[in-house]
Simulated assay, not measured.
Amino acid sequence: MTDEIPAGGRALAFGRAARAYAAYRPGYPAAVLDAVEELGGLRLAGALVADVGTGTGLAARALHGRGARVIGVEPGGGMAAQFRRELPDVPLVRGDGNRLPLADGSLDLVTYAQSWHWTDPARAVPSALRVLRPGGALALLWNDPDPSVAWVAEQQARIVARLGEGTYVSDRTLPSGLSWRSRELRWSRPVTVGFHLAKLATHSAFIVLDEASRAQFLETERKHLLHHFPDGMLDEPYTAFVAVAVRPHPQETA
C-alpha cells in the first residue's frame, strides 16, 4: 500500500520517472506568471528567483522564459539529472526545501511549484523568508486536475478508492503567519488518452505501485476514458492556484 511509504520516500521516488515527468506533466501557462507578478508586486524580467523542489524544471523553464534569473533547488538525484538535461544553462543546486542552501536576503522571489506539500511549513517558511530580500515574495503554485469537470471527478473517485485520499490532488493549505494574496485560474490542454494515462503514471502514488498493479489500473482507466472519448482525444482541464506573500520591510515589522 502507498500509505506505508514515508512522504519523503514518495517525494524522492519521482527520480524513477524523471524522463516521463518531463515529457508528460503540464507546464505553467502565462496567466500563472502574470498572477505571480501582480500578487507579488514584482517583475519577473531580471528578478533573481529560486524555484524550490524544481524537479525537471517545469516552472523554472516558464520563469526563465519570462527573463528571470532562475536557480533550481532540488533534493532528488534523478530529477536533478533530468533538470540539467532540460535546462543546461540554468543553475541548479542540490538542496532541501526546508533548509535552502542560499544566502540571506539574496532573492527577489522564491517559488514552490507543485512542491510545497513535500515540506514542513514550520521550517520551510522561515527558510524562504531568510533568503528573500525585504519586499521579496514567496509564491506557492499548484497545477491540479479540475474536479468540476465530470470525467475528472469520476477518475479521481476511482483513484481514491484504489489508492486512498490525498494521492492525486494537492493539499492547498496555506501556512499561517503570513499575509497571502491568491488567485485560481482554469486552463486546459488537448492530449490523447494515451498521453493522459502516461501523465497519470507520473504521480507519486502510481510510481510506488508495483508494476502489475499500476498497469492493471491504467488499462481499466483507458477503457473508462475511451467510453467518454471514443476518438482517443480529450481536453485535460486544470485549476492553477497561485498564492503569494511578501516579506515585510524591517520598518513594517518594528
Rank of each mutant, 00 (worst) to 15 (best):
P126F: 01
S115D: 13
P134L: 12
D120W: 04
L33V: 12
S106I: 13
N98H: 13
G41I: 09
P26I: 08
L102P: 14
A50P: 02
G97I: 15
G41V: 09
Q114W: 09
A35K: 07
M79S: 03
A60N: 04
A139V: 14
G78H: 03
G53H: 08
V49A: 10
D144H: 11
A17R: 12
W116R: 07
A47N: 02
L92A: 09
L48N: 00
A60Y: 07
E38Y: 00
G27H: 07
R69Q: 15
A137E: 14
Y112A: 13
L42P: 06
R19V: 08
G65W: 07
E37V: 07
A50M: 01
L87F: 02
V93K: 01
V110A: 14
R123W: 05
R84Q: 12
A20D: 15
G46Y: 06
V73D: 08
D144A: 11
G65K: 10
T111G: 06
A17M: 13
N143L: 14
G57E: 02
A17K: 12
G78S: 03
L100K: 13
V73G: 09
A62K: 08
S127N: 03
R61Y: 00
G72S: 11
H64A: 13
G67M: 03
R99Y: 04
T111F: 07
V73N: 08
A80T: 00
L42V: 11
V36L: 12
A50E: 04
V125A: 09
L132D: 10
Q114N: 15
L132I: 10
G57I: 01
A124N: 13
T56C: 01
R84S: 09
V93L: 15
L44F: 05
R85S: 05
S115A: 15
P145R: 15
M79N: 01
L48F: 04
A47Q: 03
L33F: 06
A45V: 01
P29H: 03
L141P: 10
R66K: 03
L100S: 14
G41Y: 03
Q82I: 00
P101V: 13
R19A: 14
G53C: 11
R99I: 00
